[in-house]
Write a protein that binds this DNA or RNA. Structure first.
Length: 292
DNA sequence: CTTTGTTTAGCCTCGT
DNA sequence: ACGAGGCTAAACAAAG
């Protein structure tokens, strides 16, 4: 029977993998990125099961963050104190749980070995080379995944990720690096950059160029987001666009109309409510609700 | 020091 | 059986 006031899986282990839990936390956040400690917090707040054995599962979770290419690191800006980077979802990771299971993904979002090698030298150069080429000024970020869609499998070119990690590994704000490299930073590129790295690559001239969601008017899970992403002066930080562009969608996927930048946060809250109803039934939640 | 992040290894479950 | 994906342990480095 439903326990009034109870809001989660009690002490039962939730039917989610660490990947889905982490993705849930990230997607739920206003900026679509969270520091590690906030990912912990998210999970512990909602799933009492994870309030114990923290050493164990947090180690596993960190392992997942590092090991899985679907998670990317985004360095803090200088005005944001704290330890560690922000974690976000790779824009091209698509729907990892299309099969409806949050315990087991359809397939891993993995990079090619060649792409690993390709960026050893100067990731930044690779990045701009490829992306200036692939992404055109007006082009929707969505177009990015087009060349990933080969049904054949994961062999699609996915240069972004390694470069991503390379860029992030540099620890420098994207715009700084660009400047250092002498890049002119054209508006269209900055727009793209700001879409993909709303946190890192924010350029003043493009602040108003992307759809903006008000961060404070939506607090899924009843979680207070206020103050989380504001600087010392209480000014709101640049508001991002949802990281996930257009995932590879099968025909007739219900998600089709829901994924544009105009869709604010997904109904993760709804999802959880549903999960409560389904609790104990073993029925997984609808995947479309997790990462849209 | 603690926290964060990376990496390797082994075992498990699941689907084919 | 096999492979892919998930979980845990652990060693280790780096950063705050």
């Amino acid at each position: 029977m439903p326990r009034p006031g109870k809001n989660s899986y009690s002490d039962q282990k939730p039917p989610y993998s660490y990947i889905s839990l982490t993705a849930m936390a990230i997607q739920n956040s206003v900026e679509k990125m969270l520091p590690l400690s906030d990912i912990y917090k998210f999970i512990m707040d909602r799933f009492p099961y994870y309030r114990e054995n923290t050493q164990r599962w947090q180690n596993s979770l960190r392992h997942n963050l590092s090991f899985n290419d679907c998670f990317i690191k985004i360095p803090r800006r200088p005005d944001q104190p704290g330890k560690g980077s922000f974690w976000a979802l790779h824009p091209d990771c698509g729907d990892m749980f299309e099969n409806g299971s949050f315990l087991r993904r359809r397939k891993r979002f993995k990079l090619l070995r060649a792409e690993h090698m390709a960026c050893k030298g100067s990731p930044m150069m690779h990045y701009f080379h490829h992306h200036h080429h692939h992404h055109h000024p007006g082009a929707k970020l969505a177009a990015a995944s087009a060349h990933h869609e080969h049904p054949a499998g994961p062999t699609s070119t996915n240069i972004i990720n390694r470069d991503y990690k390379g860029v992030m590994a540099s620890g420098l704000p994207l715009t700084s690096v660009m400047h250092h490299l002498g890049y002119p930073v054209p508006p269209q590129l900055s727009s793209m950059v700001n879409s993909m790295w709303p946190h890192v690559g924010m350029l003043p001239e493009s602040m108003g160029s992307v759809p903006v969601h008000t961060p404070t008017d939506y607090a899924p899970f009843g979680m207070s987001m206020k103050g989380l992403y504001q600087n010392a002066n209480g000014q709101a930080l640049p508001v991002p666009v949802p990281i996930k562009p257009t995932p590879s969608l099968g025909p007739g996927t219900a998600l089709t109309g829901l994924q544009s930048g105009s869709t604010p946060l997904c109904s993760a809250a709804l999802m959880l409510e549903k999960s409560e109803m389904l609790e104990g039934k073993g029925a997984p939640l609808h995947p479309a609700l997790l990462l849209s």
